[in-house]
Amino acid sequence: MMVTSTDRSPAPLGISEQVPVIELQDLCVHLGNRLILNQLRGSLKGNIVGLLGPNGAGKTTLLRTLLGFYSAGSGDARVLGHSLRSEGRDIRALVGYMPEDDAHIAGMTAIRWVRFLGELSGLPSDTALERGHEALGYVGLGEARYRKVGTFSTGMKQLVKLAQALVHGPRLLLLDEPTNGLDPAARARFLELVTEVGARGETRILISSHLLGDVERVCDEVVILKAGILVATCDLRTDPDGKQPFVELELSTFSREFIDNIEAQGCGIVIRAKTRIQVELPTGLEIRDLFRAALSCGIGLRRVNLRRDSLQDVFLRAMEDNNASS
């Protein structure tokens, strides 16, 4: 694990070229009589995929289902090519899981805990010990590895959870709300670690979170869930539809004529305030055309900002679209 700086993997492939890490095939999950995941279909190809959604959307349920904790009511999912229904054990051998809540034995030292889980994953005893030391060192707990996990702070417990998820060298990491309870510095460091692990392309990562900033910072693909339904997927690196460009305009005075004029040219318009509007430009139309329209209507443009949707915009739009369709 500890290698010289020259030992670098080649740059990861683009998302569209990559083998899907998870394929959802009309996956349904019921808990009791409630339908929690409703016919999820899609294929996740990114190196670091963000799983977004409001509380109760089914993010954690999806992760737990991928681990076989909940059984699929109908449909299936393939994780790294293995079927959820028939190859659960094979999936778990390839996956490292960091749950949202505390997950440790309070009386065990960090090194013993990580070694124990390494051995359960199939590492020989001495290798598990060696990699346990390395994993704890890697996440920054080298000095604290002989302390009992029960005495750790929240941030340290999060790091132990990451170390145990990494110790056996999984091909897929499932991280459930990994930055919960971390202070800003610890959060930044944690995200740096995650980015570093994902960057090599050997270990793919699925992060469930409702912290859009975290997801936007580290992920290259995003899946948005709402009420158990997959409402949007978005390639954060290249997808022009996912993060659509738009123009924010501030008019010298409100003009219905100007709005009608640019709407007639195919622009999508959202009126934010009396003199502030957001304009989605159709293909072929440029900002100079907006100036021409303003000139012909006799108004001035006080401010023109060309922007792209932030992840928050994509997320909110997905929530709104879903509301409208439902």
């Binding site: 694990m1 290698v3 700086s5 054990r89 199939g122 290798t127 990699r131 091909r171 090599r200 050997e202």
Partner: peptide, 19 residues
């Protein structure tokens, strides 16, 4: 001198039956 870089383990896993 050394840069810490994460690397997967690629050895042979122990037998599943005695796990």
């Amino acid at each position: 001198v050394l840069d810490r870089v994460w690397k997967r383990w690629k050895g042979t896993a122990t037998s599943i039956h005695g796990r």
